[in-house]
Design a protein around this nucleic acid. Structure first.
Length: 384
DNA sequence: ATAGGGTTAG
């Protein structure tokens, strides 16, 4: 971004000067807030602050909107920590935040998974006499679910209900997901019942979450029962539904079942397998030591233009190492480079073990720099 | 055009 936007900001500043020169055309607080926001959006937080000083000099006091614009800008460009201390300073000067102010901070800390700070600012908000609205509660419940804090999440649900508010489908889905992760079936059912009582119907995300849960526990009877119910409700299985079922069969070692669902996908529906689904299958056949099948699935991906990702290659590197197929490792390393697929620490771990076979560190370094390793004459542009 | 938000398969 930057230059074009910065250019327009310069125009805005010039316009402001012109406004001041014309009689009866006085920039007001809104004018300044717009300008402050513009500077914040391009990351010029300091310029934004000096615009605030200028507005003060002209006798216009910044309001809570000005404060929120700055807090948001600081969170975005300087991190939540700086916005945090800035608000504390502002509060000392008597400027009070509102629900929006706390929402900005709560979400900033939620985004970096700092749940302590999320809770801290929720408490601060209540202490400051702000009554939280449903959106605030949803943000908090989301943060608590992400942090896997099921008890705290339920406590927050209680607070929301006491405030006369209720959960929506999205919030229920997050909670159901959390209880599935924690393997708390009773709580899952409780949520589903509660949801029904609130007049909310499960959507495909709810169903997919449940299918994945029962799949993980190899309870295929429940998986099918839920799929049946899903169809009765007029919901169509999507790529995630199929992915969950295929993954379930894979982890149960039922490869023929997994392949059956996989093959049915394209023919019985217009839903086609994606990278996640191919990876489930490739990982499963690798685990069974079936290199040929793994490579053929990867070829199938290339043919159907489903992009392999780093997980695909890592699974293949592992089995190729076990089977001592160095030539293929080198070929796949080149293919990764060609497809701009970035290696990760797992890739490096596997390849490091193959160092002598790959031809010492030289080739690994070339690989990392984006050069061909299979044939030393070929050369690609460095990609990483 | 003055400020705020969250979900599913590996």
């Amino acid at each position: 971004m930057g230059s074009a936007m910065l250019g327009r900001l310069k125009e805005a500043e010039e316009l402001l000067v012109m406004m001041k020169m014309e009689k009866g055309c006085v920039p007001n607080r809104r004018t300044y807030n717009c300008l402050v926001d513009g500077h914040c959006r391009v990351g010029e937080v300091d310029t934004a602050k000096s615009a605030v000083s200028r507005m003060k000099e002209e006798g216009i006091e910044p309001n809570v909107v000005t404060l929120n614009i700055l807090i948001k800008g600081m969170c975005r460009h300087h991190g939540a920590g700086s916005a945090d201390s800035f608000l504390i300073d502002m509060e000392k000067e008597g400027l009070k935040g509102n629900v929006v102010t706390y929402m900005i901070l709560i979400n900033a800390y939620r985004n970096v998974n700092n749940i302590e700070k999320v809770m801290h600012w929720f408490d601060q908000m209540v202490e400051a006499g702000c009554s939280p609205d449903a959106k605030i509660f949803y943000a908090l419940i989301s943060g608590l679910c992400q942090a896997r804090r099921d008890h705290d999440a339920l406590a927050m649900v209680e607070k929301l209900k006491r405030a006369g508010l209720s959960l929506d489908l999205l919030a229920y889905n997050m909670l159901i997901r959390l209880f599935c992760d924690k393997n708390k079936a009773d709580e899952v059912y409780e949520m589903l019942t509660d949801m029904e009582g609130a007049g909310l119907k499960p959507d495909s995300i709810t169903y997919n979450t449940l299918i994945s849960y029962f799949g993980k526990h190899k309870d295929f009877e429940s998986v099918h029962r839920i799929m049946e119910k899903m169809r009765e409700e007029g919901l169509v299985p999507n790529v995630v539904t199929y992915g969950a079922i295929i993954q379930a069969y894979c982890s149960a070692g039922k490869m023929s079942k997994a392949m059956e669902v996989f093959n049915d996908m394209g023919s019985h529906s217009k839903i086609f397998p994606n990278t996640v689904i191919y990876n489930s299958l490739i990982k499963a056949v690798c685990k069974l030591g079936n290199l040929k099948e793994a490579l053929s699935l990867k070829e199938d991906m290339m043919k159907t233009r489903v992009r392999p990702n780093v997980e695909t290659y890592n699974a293949l590197f592992k089995i190729l190492k076990d089977k001592n197929q160095i030539e293929t490792v080198l070929e796949l390393m080149d293919e990764m480079v060609k497809n701009s697929c970035e290696p990760n620490h797992i890739t490096m771990e596997v390849l490091m073990k193959l160092l002598p076979e790959i031809g010492e560190a030289k080739n690994l370094k070339k690989f990392l720099q984006g050069y061909s390793v299979a044939s030393s004459t070929e050369k690609y542009a460095p990609l990483f």
